[in-house]
């Protein structure tokens, strides 16, 4: 149990997807201008990461390894994630229109989001068990959402700030990300 907690917080805070692993940078800078959309994007990514981890783990361990086809990992995973995103999108559209209106436009973007594929690779590379993979995925998704929300909060204020002209917009967002990363550096060492 303590092991699972360590993995969760390790993924969410210490090895944060965006700030340490540099995965999912496109949505991080693209969708972090408004708090509401940042939250929706975060939840959508969390959802896809967890489902993708739950599906790719058995595929790798019960299909690819027994047939000695580990080299097919990238191709299979990327296809699985692309289909999963489609299925999730259709399911949400049919069952819950409110949720679809909130998440709908972000789902297709996630297909080429390196965060999702990255987590499925990390699960395999770290030799996580099935439950560990799910927890790692939950942690990574939670960490992603957290950082996206913090960043959008800061950026809403940044719009009103007055940085040097050359820094306005994206450059200052990168500098902000640096300070955010510095703060998260303090989490290093909480997992022994």
């Amino acid at each position: 149990m303590s092991n699972l907690i360590a993995i969760f917080f390790g993924m969410a805070l210490v090895n944060n997807l965006v700030l340490v692993k540099f995965l999912g940078l496109c949505p991080f800078f693209g969708v972090s201008k408004k708090l509401g959309s940042a939250f929706s994007m975060g939840v959508a990514v969390l959802l896809v990461i967890v489902v993708a981890s739950a599906v790719t783990w058995p595929i790798f361990h019960f299909l690819l390894i027994p047939y000695g086809a580990e080299f097919m990992r990238t191709v299979i995973f990327v296809l699985v994630i692309a289909s999963l995103v489609q299925i999730i999108e259709m399911t949400i559209k049919r069952t819950n229109l409110t949720l679809y209106n909130a998440l709908g436009i972000y789902l297709p973007l996630i297909t080429t989001n390196c965060a999702v594929l990255g987590i499925t690779f990390i699960n395999i590379d770290q030799a996580y068990t099935f439950s560990e993979s799910i927890i790692a995925a939950l942690g990574a998704g939670a960490g992603f959402t957290l950082v996206l929300i913090i960043m959008s909060g800061i950026r809403e204020r940044l719009d009103m700030a007055d940085p040097p002209l050359a820094f306005k917009g994206t450059p200052i967002a990168f500098i902000t990300a640096m300070f955010l990363g510095l703060c998260f550096l303090a989490f290093r060492g909480i997992i022994r």
């Binding site: 210490v14 090895n15 290093r188 060492g189 997992i191 022994r192």
Partner: peptide, 9 residues
Amino acid sequence: IAEQSGYSG
């Protein structure tokens, strides 16, 4: 080969 958790990883 020995493995141990360090400060990060």
